[in-house]
Design a binder for these strands. Sequence first.
RNA 1: GGCCCCAUCGUCUAGGUAGGUCCAGGACACCGGGUUUUCAACCCGGCAACAGGGGUUCGAAUCCCCUUGGGGCUACCA
Length: 545
Amino acid sequence: MVVTRFAPSPTGYLHVGGARTALFNWLFARRMGGKFILRIEDTDLKRNTPTATRQVMDDLRWLGIQWDEGPEVGGPNGPYLQSQRRDLYDKYVKQLIDEKKAYYCFDTPEELDALRKEAEAQKKNFIYPRPKDFPGESDVEKAKARDKPAAVRFAMQLTGIVVTDVVRGEVKFGPGEIGDFIIQKSDGFPTYNFACVVDDYSMKVTHVIRGQEHLMNTPGQQALWKALGFGELPKYAHMSVTISETGGKLSKRERPEALRKIIKATQDIDLEKLAEVGNITLEEVETFIKAKTTPDIPSIDAMATYLGVALPEINVVDFFRSGYLPETMVNFLALLGASPGGDREIMPLDELIDCFDLSRLTKANSLFDRKKLLAFNTEHIRQAGGEKLLSHFKDYLKAVESPVISADDKMLEKILEICAGARTLADIERKSRFLFLADEKIEYDEKAVKKVLLKNNGLAILQIVRDKLAAMEQFTVENIENMLRSLAEEKQVGLGKVAQPLRVAICGTAVSTPIFDSVQMLGKENTLTRVDITLKKFGQSNDDC
RNA sequence: GGCCCCAUCGUCUAGGUAGGUCCAGGACACCGGGUUUUCAACCCGGCAACAGGGGUUCGAAUCCCCUUGGGGCUACCA
C-alpha cells in the first residue's frame, strides 16, 4: 500500500509552498488508495511556536486535506510528534554508535565555523574530518565535565551514491562529497536528517514527495537508511520549488519585507501609533524598519491593516482572509509544477485526484502567479453554487469579523446571487457591508463624493431621486428600477448619472451591489435617512461647484 | 567558492520518454473593440515562446555536448 506523509516543522502558519507539498502527497495517496500521514517535526526547540501545530492542522483542514494518521486522529505508528519519539531515536543512535557507524564529536560552533571558512578559502567543499578512532563513553564524560557540547555524527559511506528520483531520474553524488553529518544534537534531540529516516521507516512510508530543497539531503538519508538496516528504500520524488514574483523561493519573510518597503516609501507615518496598533515598542518598529528585526505575524498584519495596505498573501490563512475559496487553492496548487496534460485547468477535486500522477510533475521551478489564482477563484466562486458558497462566505465573514455576519441566510443568499461574477469573497463583503452599518456610520469616500455628488448636478439629482423614492408606495426592485430609468430618460442622461449619486449616498462609496437591489434591500426608511444625511452634509459645498 | 537541479509566449503549461502530423496548442496577464447602473463578470479580436552555439539525422522544440541564465543546498534549521 502507498503511504505518503507531510512533515512540517511547527514554526508558524502553513504557507502555500508547504500546502502544495502536503497536497501532492495527499492527492497521490488518494489516487493510489493509500494512506496519508501528518507528522510534526518539532525537534528544534528554539524555532517551535506553541500555536503552530494547531494552525497548520486548521489550515490543512480548511483546504480539505485530511490525514489518515497523525495528531488528533492517531494511528498505529504514533506518536506523531517527533518530540515524543525520543526513545526511538536514542535506540537507533545507540545502535549506530555500537556498530561504529556513528561517533561522538565535541566541537564548538566557533571551531566548526573556522573549519568551514578554511575550506571555503581553499575553494573546497567542507567535509568534517572524521577521527581515526571514535571517542568512547569516557571521552563523553570528560567533554561534559569541561562543558563541551557532545553531538553524534554519522560516519557517512565513502563510496558514491546514486539517488533514484521519480521526477529527476538518477542523480549521482561522488565519493566523499557528503560529509559526516550530525544525527543527534548536543541537546539530545535528533536532527531532521536522522529523525526523518527513522520515522519514514517506522511509519512505513513508501513515497517521499517533497521539495527540491531536500534533494541534497537524500544521499545522506539514503546512506543512513542502509546503515540502519532498514531494507528497501522508499521512492523519492523531489518536486520543483515555487518561486515568488520577487525571485527566489517563496518565503514567509515576504510579508514583513513588503510591509517594510511600504513603510519606508511612505511619508508622514506616525511610528508611535504604528507601534501601538502592532502591539510592539517604538524601538521595535525602528529596528524593524532598519531590517534588523521582524515582529510577529499578528503585529505585521495589524500594522498593515492600520496603514490600509494589502500585503502579498503567503500563508494559507492569508488567502482565506483575502477571500479565496479552498477549492481554488487546491485546484491552483495542484496544477503548479504539475499538469494533467492537455488543456484541463479548472477541475473539481475528484478529477484532480483522478488525474494526479507523479510522472506529470514538472522539473522546472514555477512562479506563483496571483493574477491567475484570482481568475481561478472567480471561476470557482461561480461554480461553487448556493449552499457551498454560502457556507464559505459565512466562514469568511466570521474570520474577518464583518458586520455582514449579522444577516440571515436568506439575505446572504440574495447578496451572493446579485454579486455573481465577483472575484473574491472579500469583494462581496466590501460591496455589501454598507447594508449592515448604522445610517450615521456611513463613511464617505472622498473621491466618490467629489466625482459623483459635487459634479454634474449630482446633489440636485439626488434631491429629485429622494423625493421620488419618498413618494413610492411599493418599494420593490422593479419600481425602483423603473423610476431611475425614466428619470434618466427624462433628463436625457445615462442611468449612471442618476444612479451613482444615490449609490454614494447610501454606501458612501462608488462601488456596491447593483443599485436597484441595494436600495430595495436597505429599505425605504434607511435609504431616505441616508440620502438626507448626505444632502445635509454636502449641501453647502455644492454652491461653489 | 563547492555540489546539485532546471531551461517552450510576460506567467502557468501542452508537445519531449517512442525525432517528421508543431511556421508550436490552451489558460492567465496584456492590448483593441463590444456589452454595462458602479466594481466585477461576460462576448469578439489581437500580441506573444522552443535561451545561444555546436553536433547527430534526410529531418530536432524533441537526442548529445558546450556556453549563458535561473533556482536549490552548502547549520548541533527543517
